[in-house]
Design a protein around this nucleic acid. Structure first.
Lengths: 109, 109
DNA sequence: CGGTTAATTGATGATTTGGTTAAGTACAGC
DNA sequence: GCTGTACTTAACCAAATCATCAATTAACCG
């Protein structure tokens, strides 16, 4: 990861497929740590730590209900990712259109 | 990083501010390794490695022109990020609108 | 109280990351 | 061919990451 700026922490949190799977699961609603761990061939402590990474990135928040820690998605940091991405959108959108336009230009000359 | 799926590699590459700065610089057009290194208080080898990370992620490609390696932005992987993000857009967009709606509901009841 | 369940924390270890300096490669030009 | 410029690779080191199992905390329940 290296730095602690929001974007770096967010991207780092998203760079692990297990963590992205957890986020995907949380779109369907709250889930306990155990429920989140179930689909993964991984120990519970490992999932607990992945959740801590997501929490530190502000992507997940945990409640306390008896001995359960219901987790829920907190997507706000993704908006920053979206805004960052916006600065690059022109470079990857309509790629085919722009390629076609370029080819047309070449043909004209 | 951990895994080698495209999205993981891309997010990992983006999780470093130096690398994001390099991408930002490349939006303005091609640049040599030395030119990319100049703004950073960091040795040239360090930048060279950052570039290799970006290359492996498919975000940058290098040419060869005499002893220079002109680098250019290759934004295609960012489209995948955009697509991934799309699945979460509903959770972070119109946050204020949805909050207002929720408050209105509460007031009604 | 004692036992079970849910989850976190500690200790450990392998691997990766991100930086350094020093040496090596490749090309340009005198 | 020699020298300087551009960049990469090698060797090394410190710190972070990601997993493990074992121990701990905390709450419920009979």
């Amino acid at each position: 990861m290296a730095d602690d700026d929001t974007l770096s922490v967010t991207f780092a949190a998203l760079s692990d497929p297990t963590r992205r799977a957890i986020l995907a699961r949380l779109r369907q609603g709250e889930a306990t740590v155990g429920e989140l761990a179930a689909p993964h061939a991984m120990s519970l402590p490992a999932i607990s730590r992945h959740l801590k990474v997501l929490e530190r990135a502000g992507l997940v928040s945990k409640g306390r209900e008896a001995q359960w820690r219901p987790c829920r998605l907190d997507a706000a940091p993704l908006r920053e990712v979206d805004e960052w991405l916006r600065g690059y959108r022109a470079f990857y959108e309509n790629r085919i259109d722009r390629l076609a336009a370029q080819l047309a230009d070449e043909e004209e000359s």
